[in-house]
Design a protein around this nucleic acid. Structure first.
Lengths: 198, 198
DNA sequence: CGTCGATGTAAGAGGGCTCTTACTTGCTAA
DNA sequence: TTAGCAAGTAAGAGCCCTCTTACATCGACG
């Protein structure tokens, strides 16, 4: 791993990750390319390869950062939501919608199949911590078994991801729905899921 | 529109659409290319352009077929589900998971932003019919206003799409979940959403 | 102050994709 | 039976992408 010291560019490694988020948020994973990220930072198309062996290594770093940031956003949202465990878990769905819409990097990036082949402890640790955060929020609602807790987390994420994904694809566009509208609806839906012990 | 008569290939136009579904189901929209579809049918890469002016026109036809097929699958599932309106709507979520996983073409294809520019009455009619089917199912549950009905449909689709999308991205892979498992969980979640009048 | 190594660039090989053009094949219908 | 046209092919232009190689730059440190 390269150092973080400022050289010619300053800190190209971090800048590449940040610019990747911008590109993902604007154009989605389909349009993501190393060359486009480099263009955006006005560096040569070879420059990223000084910091990442290949495209997937960059995406892997983006994935790690996404898991970390998303986990923090979810924790913050839960703490803002108050003390009711169900509200706290539901708030995670809202945080997912807002954060992933802003960054373009949700579970479809965090768990992108191409990245499975890369053994990166940092990324694994961040995704694990993210899941732990969610599992803790779910367990606090009083789920019985661990299995039930997992199912509840997955249902919550499915709702959040579904709203986010449809929003990104323009499904709600005609109604001029804002991100906050969609996030609020995801929270409502996630909230209803809780007592159901899905 | 070309005719459907059998020439050299037989019916390349229909075959292209069918092969597009296969490719989408296997590799997703990200890997979709006209060249890959042609390869799959063992025709030259120029052949598709005899039937579709460009890549988006092919996707547009796929989108129309997807809306039609998905609508039929949802209707069939609702009829199998029985007479309880809430069960019938929830069954649509299950049909969505199964059908879209099998074909690779859900709302992310049906409402793909690139296709908005194409004025295709057939496609518009099929997507409209699909939405009508869903709105009818939702209205039967006793929603008050049209606005409430729309919100309920969108919530149902969000749940179904979320589970489908996460499943496709491998989120559930480690637990060896089958499509039917995921579909069942989507139905449960959708069912819970109904009385909530989301 | 001069060397070394990290960081960046220019250039390009190699590949895939979209779409076009000119040519070929073979069904259909007069 | 043969002209005409729908449908397919071969070839390639033009574009973007990934990743490599050889060279340039510049800060750090002896």
């Amino acid at each position: 791993m390269p150092t973080n010291r400022a050289y010619h560019h300053g800190d190209l490694r971090a800048a590449l990750i940040a610019a990747s988020f911008d590109l993902l948020a604007e154009s989605g994973l389909r349009r993501f390319s190393v060359a486009a990220v480099a263009r955006r930072l006005q560096v040569s198309s070879a420059a990223p390869y000084r910091h990442f062996a290949d495209r997937n290594q960059l995406l892997n770093a983006v994935s790690a950062a996404a898991a970390e940031d998303l986990g923090a956003a979810i924790k913050a949202a839960a703490d803002t939501a108050g003390s009711d465990p169900a509200d706290r878990l539901a708030a995670a769905a809202g945080a997912y919608v807002r954060h992933v819409t802003a960054t373009g990097a949700g579970f479809h990036v965090i768990f992108a199949a191409e990245l499975y082949a890369i053994a990166d402890d940092a990324r694994r640790e961040h995704t694990r911590a993210l899941m732990t955060t969610l599992l803790d929020l779910a367990a606090a609602t009083g789920t019985g078994s661990y299995q039930e807790t997992v199912l509840l987390v997955e249902a919550t994420i499915a709702v959040a991801h579904g709203y986010t994904s449809l929003h990104a694809d323009g499904f709600f566009a005609r109604k001029a729905s804002t991100v906050d509208d969609i996030a609020a609806r995801a929270v409502e839906a996630a909230r209803v899921l809780v007592p159901a012990r899905l």
